[in-house]
Design a binder for these strands. Sequence first.
DNA 1: TTGCGTTGTTCAGCGTGCTGAATAATCATG
DNA 2: CATGATTATTCAGCACGCTGAACAACGCAA
Lengths: 153, 153
Amino acid sequence: MGAGDPVASWPTGRLLSVAARLVEHSWQEFLATRGLTHAGLIALHLLREGPRTQRALAHGAKVTDQTMSRTVERLHRAGFVERGVDPVDRRRMVVSLTDEGREVHAEALRAEREEPEVLGAVRDYEAFRRQLVELVTVLGVDRTTSARPDPRG
Amino acid sequence: MGAGDPVASWPTGRLLSVAARLVEHSWQEFLATRGLTHAGLIALHLLREGPRTQRALAHGAKVTDQTMSRTVERLHRAGFVERGVDPVDRRRMVVSLTDEGREVHAEALRAEREEPEVLGAVRDYEAFRRQLVELVTVLGVDRTTSARPDPRG
DNA sequence: TTGCGTTGTTCAGCGTGCTGAATAATCATG
DNA sequence: CATGATTATTCAGCACGCTGAACAACGCAA
């Protein structure tokens, strides 16, 4: 029994963090058996409508460029994405899905739809999600390397 | 502008994870200037009513023993906790707050109360928190090393 | 063309989570 | 008392987030 700790007294950030871990944990088996990870899955998701640069992926996933760099590298090692230098701007890496990547992402979407079992714990699930989306949208305006508040003096 | 990524289509686990990061990020300055971290703060919080073993802390924080081991080690290095071997059971490490630890925790509590600015993004904040608490409570029954579902045959 | 600021990616290093495995102390048994 | 299982902690190693810094390619201006 999980006794003795009044979770209700935790700061919201910690609640979110623990909730995230617990929910993502329920995906571990699915992901592990496919050689995929949470971070990778979001990148795949962002690539579903066509190739993107790493920076675009980082921005879309709301992580830093550095983090996305490693995520893409991992996805590439696993064979889920292809990377190539953008001929127009050779600084850029253009990332695109492989067939395997597209396949595993489709499978994840299916599993996602079929397994909301875990979230049965939440009463008004839709409202809860809306609030999360709102929070992420408002706070997550920028999560890139250059996160200066005011570039102009 | 945070454009081009329909956050609303993300899986809930990822939404939680990003929300957690964004909210915790808003605490970074406070924590960094005190040589404290998110993980450490929860441990301090759990110690406010007296000494605890590391395992108890891990259980309370819903992390593994291994993770708590490092967290406590860091807190100790920073001078916020004292560790000692339990004379009754010499396997156990008994962790207790130092004066500095108690002080910084009190300060954090104050700051927490004064700065819900960030969460202004959430409409029904109290309901949101209740849902989080519920989620964590239901899913987070056990997060220890020994996570066998049913010890009895 | 040279020079310099900007941009896109990567490297280094740290904190926090995990799993698996080692170690040490305790408990339970013979 | 020896033996083995359990318990509490730690070590090793990985994933994923961050910051700071390095680097190459681009863009613009002199």
